[in-house]
Write a protein that binds this DNA or RNA. Structure first.
Lengths: 188, 188
DNA sequence: GTCTATAAAGTGATAGAC
DNA sequence: GTCTATCACTTTATAGAC
């Protein structure tokens, strides 16, 4: 899509507000003020409010996918290390990267049908990465169970961290990720 | 608080709409229509929209707490059985009971400060039940790690099921709960 | 690319009759 | 306890000047 640097910056600011207030409570006036322009000017960059949400979610999911792939590339090849890399990457996009991934996860239902159709393949690609890494861990006997169930439980546990975890606290995101992975692996 | 049978019924219907549409997108007119009255009449039962949300969340958390306590009472005393009972009870309030618990979990931030203050003790009591049961499992050597971290990961995994799990599908909520507990327990 | 001004519709809530 | 009618305000979005 259109990716002018201006539009990218606006998308970044929108993501921040959507996380703080939620999509529904964020008005175009709030968005415009945060961007230092008047609300009318906003519609020169985006067709409507929906398109702003779609842009944020597209960036958020794209980031998550890119960071996960990079982490896997840089990870040692062992199934355990790759599992850990995925969990760390997930928390990285949630807390240390930008707010866009949080919006993608928590405001997905607010997308209209056509935007969902357009973005679902991105989301599916990300989840497929998880299923694949979990499959490797299953094959290696590291964990046991259904691959879809495990990936959904793990993603749920990770996603819910945005409700309680403070990245400025004593535990780093990486440590948090490691503790989750330790929890699902039978004692060694 | 006030708990006339009429008000209880209205609260139940409100919970359903809040789950379907989200609190922000549910208008007082939608609520009234669902209840078979006009929007003006709604304010005879509730002071304002906030009070409806507070009523729903109070009922949802109260239900979750009551069902969890009952399940623990009826459970065999072993730490593993009690852990399983808590997970089953959680999914029961999420899927087979009412929608109120889902609202309590996903719309908590929409409460105003005084309502949060009034209801947080209920929520804390519920979470304390979880921490206690997890402590018992830790003491018995069933699981390993930090009790708060484990309870939050487990609750996150359970809460996120509302995003993907279909209770009308092939797996019952009880089976789902059992698979999660199996996932966090080292192989026996 | 941003402004001002405003349209068009929807929002939560109130007053007073029945 | 419900109705009708309506207020006061906010919302997204548009039009046209600069």
């Amino acid at each position: 899509m259109n990716a002018s640097p201006r539009r990218k910056e606006l998308t970044r600011l929108a993501a921040q507000l959507f996380v703080q207030e939620g999509f529904d409570r964020t008005t175009v006036r709030m968005l415009a003020q945060e961007m230092g322009i008047k609300s009318g000017s906003l519609f020169h960059h985006f067709k409507d409010k929906q398109e702003i949400l779609a842009a944020v979610i597209e960036e958020g999911t794209h980031n998550a996918l890119a960071i996960a792939k990079r982490s896997l590339d840089e990870s040692p090849p062992s199934p355990e290390a790759r599992l850990r890399a995925m969990a760390r990457a997930h928390l990285e996009t949630l807390f240390t990267d930008r707010n866009a991934h949080v919006v993608a996860l928590f405001e997905w239902r607010r997308l209209d049908d056509s935007a969902k159709a357009h973005l679902s393949h991105l989301r599916d690609a990300y989840e497929a990465l998880w299923v694949q890494v979990i499959e490797e861990a299953l094959a290696a006997g590291l964990i046991h169970g259904d691959r879809f169930l495990i990936s959904r439980f793990v993603l749920g546990a990770l996603n819910w961290t945005v409700r309680w975890y403070d990245p400025a606290g004593p535990r780093t995101p990486d440590e948090l990720a490691d503790e989750l992975i330790a929890m699902i692996m039978p004692a060694r």
